[in-house]
Design a protein around this nucleic acid. Structure first.
Lengths: 258, 258
DNA sequence: CGGTTCGTTGAGGCCCATCAATCTATGTGG
DNA sequence: CCACATAGATTGATGGGCCTCAACGAACCG
């Protein structure tokens, strides 16, 4: 149990169980730089969870949020829009993710944060986070580390959007979600999947219609199976090959690290 | 001159003059969090400049660099590749940019850093940067700030790659380069432009052939004019409208800040 | 002056967008 | 319990933006 506090719950537990403390199972808690005491200090400034309906804007572009949002339960996204109104999600946010890391040091928010499902959201006041950063080197490094990992993830996303076909993009995204949600057991994977095909389209830079056709083909080939808000992948190796996916860029804690 | 040390050279000077000290005109030096003393401390750990030919890999994916590279002169890029071999540049690096910020805290590099032109490259040993970060809060914040600004830039890039047409993408990228290189005077802009159409294609997720056709049209319409390794834009408002460009996301120091 | 790199042009085709309709599941009020 | 509304998935027809393949031109350089 002490081990869990130090290193985060196991991936499977992260995806399914209710947090026992405000930050357990959170992206923050997986930092290799955070001591148990520092994690505890951070937990002291987390606000009570707020319940929000799906499709609500938590914060919008141009605002100056004074809090960092944590998606405690449910899914959300960062969303950007062209002047013409076309949407693109630079990031899907799953339970434990921070919605607006930038607000730590940047005044103006450059994207929207919107829930994709009903969700529970907590927050950390920016000023108090900055105060903790000043006192605890591990906390400071943790936030920098989070930003750097996000950089890499976004860089790999540009590769998908710029160079991969719709089929490859979808496979790659599903591989990433599987790895982040931690539902992999052997070759098989099964993970929470509450997305609409329109959500997927906005994450992949495609139209919902085309997402539909591509998904159907993957289903027909037996590569994926969709159940009740659940995605099952019988052979992750196959999906990885289709998507050209290598999980190294996610910088997840490998099993032997714990 | 003191002002220049504190706030970085003016944009025009950044693009054209030779640095008077190792970090002047650098992305680092534009941090709102860096005191003159801290900048000086950083300058103390910068290695002498190394001269490299265009097209050379400075570091490659999978390596574990112990230095942060600074492009002092010339252009470079971060480059990612699909297993099939298709390339995408998540970032173009212009003089003053850091090539592998991730290496500050991430062991494994997830992309290549390659020069696009002949270049001068300096470096800061990672361990010494970490030591300075531990001592100087402004330096710590500066690196986090750099990572967060990169995040926003990458997020906006996903919008271009996912949702904008080739014409819009090109216009948007040129707007960004113009803003970063700081060649804008009134409505007009003129800035260094050493890119090949193939480089552009890898930055935009297009083929060189199509980049060529789109550029020709912009030239024919008088929106841009290409000279000797120089791009001239007579009416930035026009180009911004085509690309749907709003410079806010770059978080550049606005003129009145200085 | 021959080689190399880069820009340009043309023909043809495919992937994915667009537009529109239908089907299904879920929920809601009477 | 049914009529109806709504959201999301599905299907079909058509078209266009960009890719692919290929060749040629232009600039630069040792």
């Amino acid at each position: 149990m002490i081990e869990n506090l130090r290193f985060g719950l196991s991936p499977v537990a992260r995806a399914t169980s209710r947090p026992s403390s405000p930050l357990s199972g959170t992206r923050l808690s997986t930092s290799p730089f955070l001591s148990p005491g520092e994690l505890h200090a951070l937990e002291g400034i987390v606000s009570p969870a707020r319940s929000v309906r799906r499709g609500t804007d938590l914060i919008g572009e141009g605002e100056r949020p004074d809090q960092l949002l944590i998606i405690a339960r449910g899914w959300a996204c960062r969303s950007t829009t062209t002047p013409r109104g076309d949407r693109q999600y630079p990031a899907l946010l799953v339970p434990g993710d921070i919605g607006n890391l930038d607000s730590l040091l940047l005044d103006r928010l450059d994207y929207d944060v919107r829930t994709l499902t009903d969700a529970l959201v907590t927050a950390m006041p920016r000023d108090r986070v900055l105060a903790l950063i000043a006192e605890h080197p591990g906390i400071a490094r943790t936030f920098t580390w989070l930003a750097l990992v996000e950089n890499v993830t976004l860089s790999k996303l540009t590769l998908s959007l710029g160079r991969r076909s719709a089929r490859e993009r979808l496979a790659h995204l599903l591989c990433e979600l599987s790895a982040r949600l931690g539902g992999e057991v052997g070759d098989e994977s099964s993970f929470s999947y509450p997305l609409t095909q329109e959500h997927l389209a906005d994450a992949l830079g495609l139209t919902p219609v085309h997402v539909n056709r591509v998904m159907q083909r993957l289903r027909a080939e037996g590569v994926i199976a969709t159940g009740l808000r659940t995605m099952t992948v019988p052979d992750m190796g196959r999906l990885r090959e289709i998507g050209g996916f290598d999980p190294a860029y996610l910088h997840l804690r490998s099993p032997q690290d714990a």
